[in-house]
């Protein structure tokens, strides 16, 4: 394999990994803290894309204002379904899964009613090319990677709230006994998770395209990543994201998308059989 082929493949892998990790992180956070499998997670990513489009196109906000604002807006709006749908279903995996599925359909079809079914592109904030060492790198993908890494780093360097989240995840009763408001913790968790999803969705839509049905792709990737990395494990989500992004880039290039999909799901099946708690997760019980 020549360097001319290797470098673009690696770069594609890095940019894919960054976006996937953002989306998967929120997904695993909700499960880890609230024990909810959020099937609507992809739709929150989709909403992030539409929020960014609205802020850039209709309000003409600068990109560096619109992007974080879009994520915060979706996070804020998500507190409504958190209150109406999920709050009664914490730690009830099957009922919450079904409720989330219903929410996912409602959000997607609601987006179709509001925005029609067509795909569209976000206004291009970065359309240049950067040449390094004889290779060409699109500006927008470099920016996406930088933003994703910054968001991950900021999340990882969490302070008191991060400790509280980890405490609640480990033992809710003890956490409450220590004076931690678990309900508020769950709200913050949900807000952060959907904010990360929205950020990932906005970045995904920026590189590719935006449509009401685009949420299924990030959701599927999030599932694969958290199963590989371990449901509820933040480092696992990061590792799973890197493994998935890189393997997809290599397999897609040399063998096509079908083989890449087959390999992803084949790996999941193997892991579920041999190590169901994932690479960095912990066994239940």
């Amino acid at each position: 394999m020549s360097v001319n082929l290797l470098v673009p493949i690696l770069f594609t892998g890095v940019s894919l990994s960054a976006i996937y990790i953002l989306v998967a992180l929120g997904f695993t956070l909700v499960f880890g803290i609230m024990r909810v499998v959020n099937f609507a997670h992809g739709e929150f990513a989709m909403m992030g894309g539409f929020a960014l489009l609205f802020l850039l196109d209709r309000l003409a906000l600068p990109y560096w204002v619109a992007l974080p604002l879009a994520a915060v807006l979706v996070g804020t709006v998500s507190l409504l379904p958190e209150r109406l749908v999920f709050r009664r279903l914490y730690a009830q995996e099957l009922p919450s899964m079904i409720a989330a599925l219903g929410l996912s359909v409602a959000l997607a079809e609601g987006a179709v009613i509001l925005f029609e079914v067509h795909e569209r592109a976000l206004p291009s904030a970065f359309s240049g090319l950067i040449h390094i060492g004889g290779f060409t790198f699109p500006e927008d993908r470099l920016v996406v990677v930088a933003i994703a890494l910054a968001a991950l780093g900021g999340f990882w360097l969490f302070t008191r709230i991060g400790l509280a989240l980890r405490t609640v995840a480990q033992d809710r009763e003890i956490a409450e006994a220590q004076g931690i408001d678990t309900r508020a913790t769950y709200r913050i968790t949900f807000f952060l998770a959907t904010m990360l999803a929205a950020l990932g969705g906005a970045l995904f839509a920026q590189i590719y395209a935006l449509s009401p049905y685009m949420g299924s792709v990030p959701l599927m990737k999030a599932f694969i990543i958290v199963i590989i990395g371990g449901l509820g494990s933040v480092p696992g989500a990061a590792l799973g994201g890197v493994l998935l992004g890189m393997s997809e880039s290599f397999l897609n290039t040399f063998y096509g998308a079908s083989v890449a999909q087959f390999a992803s799901f084949g790996a999941i099946i193997l892991l579920l059989v041999l190590r169901p708690w994932g690479l960095l997760g912990r066994p239940e019980g």
């Binding site: 082929l5 594609t12 590189i207 590719y208 897609n252 040399f254």
Partner: peptide, 14 residues
């Protein structure tokens, strides 16, 4: 490619 694919980078690279 299968419909739904958005990242054509690998195909185009080849």
């Amino acid at each position: 490619y299968d419909r739904g694919l958005k990242d054509f980078g690998p195909l185009i690279t080849r």
